[in-house]
Design a binder for these strands. Structure first.
Lengths: 142, 142
DNA sequence: TCACGATACATAATGGGATTATGTATCTGC
DNA sequence: GCAGATACATAATCCCATTATGTATCGTGA
């Protein structure tokens, strides 16, 4: 099986937890961790276009997960912040995902488990270095 | 960074190669490897609905990557087969992806490289066992 | 042989999710 | 004050997925 297929299927297994899409999920995470954000900040962090993020925030607002507030420092823009319900979902989602992943790993034999545990930080580093090489303002690899 | 985010970003790095979406890409792979397929077979393999696959095949047909042929054994259905252009793209895509991945891995130090190489088959096994536990006919985890 | 239920696909309607282009309001620097 | 830049929203479009439904064909049992 090709690695890309493996990775995508792994994502498919884990992502449904919490019921949010990828972009919604990590946008909510970002708001939870870093507080209110500008629309373009969120779009850049998620590597999608600004209108794409506008639409996503609108959907998340509709579900009560975030709200738009007025930015006092610059009236051209808004700030997006997570609601209480959003933060609750975020916390639940993270816990559930950890469980799902742990279950998957638990079915490996101990040596494979060690291998995976060692690989995760390396994968993280790999991704980070790959993105560090790309200008943030360039088009999303797509 | 949360594992899911890492995985998704890794997918985002690798997938653009070849310019096909995930479903198109692995559908084309399947046709290349296993020859003409029924629509429902393709849908099941991809874990999407039949109408979803109908639409995808229509789009791929429009791009000249596949064609529908009449199934002689059962006039209710069609067979989907890859065109020459489709097979060419498939071959190119696979080669390019291998290059991208190799580049990413080459920037690791040798010990991390070994770690990743050991982890890939385990990840594969992990995904396969996870899907083996789920009835094929059940809804896609979503 | 015929009728009924199942199968195989296409179509319709809908919504999420992404893009580029464009519009409107605000900001900044000359 | 004005021009260019910025920040977002909106419009149009396409991909991609779903469920529901329609049409044709098949398989089986009476």
């Amino acid at each position: 099986m090709e690695l890309l297929v493996v990775l995508e299927q792994l994502v498919q297994l884990i992502r449904p937890v919490g019921g949010l899409s990828s972009a919604a999920s990590s946008t909510l995470s970002r708001l939870g961790r870093a507080g209110p954000q500008r629309m373009t900040e969120l779009a850049q962090a998620q590597r999608i276009s600004q209108p794409g993020m506008t639409q996503l925030v609108t959907r998340m607002e509709r579900e009560g997960l975030v709200r738009r507030t007025t930015s006092t420092s610059d009236r051209r823009g808004v700030l997006v912040e997570a609601t209480e319900a959003g933060l609750d979902l975020w916390a639940r989602m993270r816990a559930e995902r950890a469980d799902v992943l742990q279950e998957l790993i638990d079915r490996l034999d101990p040596r494979d488990r060690t291998t995976i545990s060692a690989a995760l930080p390396v994968l993280t580093q790999l991704v980070e270095s790959a993105y560090d090489d790309q200008p943030t303002t360039s088009a999303t690899p797509r």
